[in-house]
Simulated scan of single mutants.
Amino acid sequence: MGIGRKSGDRRVILFGFPHCGDFSESYQAWSDGLPASMRFHGVELLQTGMSMREVHSDRWEQGLQEACSFVQRHLVPNEEYVFIGHCWGSLLAFEASHRMRGAGLAEPSHLFLSGCSAPHTLRSRSEAGGLQGSDSGCQPMGEYRPPVDLQQLRSRISVFTGNKDEHAMIDQLAEWSRYTSKICDVHVCEGNHAFWQAHAIKWLQVAQTIVEREYVI
């Protein structure tokens, strides 16, 4: 990527995937301060009000198609891009990465995934029904079925979670490494599954630092 550019001229596009909470405000507060070398796009879906409950539904497939179409419309030749997501937005970003590769397009250079267990460790709503204060919208209704294309991605993965997140257990997050041939690193923040509401800018700034270090400088 970036053929013909000097290292100081490199640009990266950051795509933020939606979440069932009001995550757009956190994206906005953070992305307003991005350097000129980064361009942010919040992925816009017609399928509003989605949640992890939808992963087996036609709405999920429609949302996935809409997300991929949005990304393709905003890609720029020779510019790298990364995906950022929280909860089901992380899972949507993961599936979109596979879908982009299936369409013969370059995969994102990096996935920044927050508050989401690795696909093969996701627990259904029935399995996790005893969790106190859990939001069923953050759990699939049944067993999650990963994409048919199970080849490892060539995207680096960074995973974020709260130290009290009942939906993304710390000791299981390294399992995301199964899905990439590149580095997979785990970052633990303070809080529960909704930690992003209070601390989103903090972990988004960590993601920004990684992007600047790995893809811009």
Score class of each variant (00 low, 15 high):
Ser126Ala: 15
Asp9His: 12
Ile3Cys: 06
Gly49Leu: 06
His74Met: 05
Asp22Val: 05
Asn78Cys: 08
Pro108Thr: 14
Gln151Tyr: 01
Met38Pro: 06
Ala194Asn: 08
Glu66Pro: 10
Asn78Met: 05
Tyr144Cys: 12
Arg101Asp: 02
His110Asn: 02
Ser158Met: 04
Asp9Ala: 14
Gly104Lys: 04
Val216Asp: 05
Val43Cys: 04
Met52Glu: 03
Arg101Cys: 03
Gly133Ile: 13
Val76Tyr: 00
Val71Trp: 07
Pro35Lys: 09
Glu25His: 11
Val76Gly: 05
Glu143His: 11
Ile3Glu: 07
Met141Glu: 13
Gly130Gln: 09
Lys6Trp: 00
Phe23Asn: 05
Thr161Tyr: 07
Arg99Asn: 00
Arg11Gln: 13
His74Asn: 15
Ala128Val: 08
Ala67Glu: 06
Gly142Trp: 01
Glu166Met: 14
Leu173Ser: 04
Val76Pro: 00
Thr121Phe: 11
Ala96Ser: 15
His167Glu: 03
Cys189Ile: 02
Ser124Lys: 10
Arg156Lys: 13
Gln205Arg: 15
Val188Glu: 00
Tyr81Arg: 00
Gly142His: 11
Glu25Leu: 06
Glu175Cys: 12
Leu92Asn: 01
Lys164Ser: 06
Asp32Met: 13
Tyr179Thr: 05
Gly2Asn: 13
Leu105Ile: 12
Pro18Leu: 11
Ala128His: 07
Leu173His: 07
Ser109Met: 12
Ser109Pro: 01
Leu46Gly: 15
Ser51Pro: 00
Val206Met: 09
His167Ile: 14
Arg5Met: 14
Gln28Asn: 06
Gly85Cys: 09
Tyr27Gly: 03
Gln28Gly: 01
Met50Cys: 11
Leu111Pro: 05
Phe94Ile: 09
Ser114Asn: 04
Ala93Thr: 11
Asp135Tyr: 04
Asn78Glu: 14
Ala96Leu: 07
Gly4Cys: 08
Ile157Cys: 06
Pro18Asp: 07
Gly33Ile: 02
Pro147Phe: 09
Pro108Ala: 14
Lys6Arg: 13
Ala106Gly: 01
Pro18Gly: 07
Gln47Trp: 00
Asn163Phe: 06
Glu66Lys: 14
His167Val: 15
Gly42Arg: 13
Gly129His: 03
His86Met: 04
Ile210His: 01
Ser31Val: 08
